[in-house]
């Protein structure tokens, strides 16, 4: 389980995250929802220790962040981090050198799943295929938790469908996923839990099936209440 407890983050005098708490369980898909600038990416950066926090705790399986946690969690940012002149195959080698948890068989599996070509250079890929290659680099790691930042943004609907298919496939299996997205419609039926952020804090977090069952509301209904109400 990833636990974020009372996290505070300031940029200068501006408090961007104020007392943010939520949990993400293994085997579940947790979606961070919020309008632009609400701090979704900052939360992910903080979980990966890419940005210092000014208060609160982040625990992964009960442990504070340390160098070993990087073999437990993978972060798939919204833009590919591999060098653009690399071929996909070379980027895979790079990842394999860098991480103990790299799973070559799964990486090759994903090449087929996404119909990518290992000999293509990253800077020649379309936006959709770049996003897929980016997902490949992250998901091929044998880690318990996957963080995905906006995997759907700016991508055509067929590629989006293909990416959404990842969530019901063996590529995710029993891992814990934290995802941020604007295109909630694409994954509305795929997520277990939604965490709604507003003004730098958690407005509401809920089990989406429970919400439908007890209140007869969709995620978008609740979003309207929060952001337009």
């Amino acid at each position: 389980m990833i636990e974020v407890k009372n996290m505070v983050k300031k940029f200068g005098f501006k408090k961007v995250l104020d007392d943010v708490s939520f949990t993400a369980e293994k085997g579940q898909i947790t979606c961070l929802i919020g309008v632009n600038g609400v701090g979704k990416t900052t939360i992910m950066n903080a979980i990966m220790n890419l940005t210092p926090i000014n208060g609160g705790d982040i625990l992964i399986d009960g442990q504070k962040l340390n160098k070993h946690t990087y073999e437990k969690v993978t972060f798939i940012p919204d833009a590919i981090t591999m060098l653009p002149q690399m071929k996909i195959g070379e980027a895979m080698e790079f990842m394999s050198d860098f991480y103990d948890s790299w799973n070559e068989a799964r990486a090759n599996d994903m090449i087929d799943f996404f119909r990518l070509n290992k000999n293509d250079r990253i800077n020649t890929l379309s936006k959709g295929n770049t996003a897929k290659a980016n997902l490949l680099m992250g998901l091929a790691l044998d880690v318990d938790y996957v963080l995905m930042d906006e995997p759907f943004s700016g991508i055509d609907m067929f590629s989006r469908e293909q990416i959404a298919n990842v969530f019901t496939s063996h590529l995710i299996e029993d891992r814990g996923v934290i995802i941020t997205t604007h295109e909630i419609q694409d994954i509305e039926h795929l997520i277990d839990k939604a965490v709604l952020l507003d003004n730098g804090t958690v407005y509401r977090s809920f089990d989406v099936e429970e919400l439908r069952e007890n209140e007869g509301k969709s995620i978008v209904d609740v979003m309207r209440e929060v952001y337009q109400g």
Binding site: G27, A164, T168, H189, E209
Partner: peptide, 17 residues
């Protein structure tokens, strides 16, 4: 259950339920 999750594009936990 997994095939159903995949076919309907729904959460595997939901299919299980």
């Amino acid at each position: 259950r997994r095939e159903i999750a995949n076919m309907f594009k729904i959460n595997p936990n939901t299919a299980q339920r």
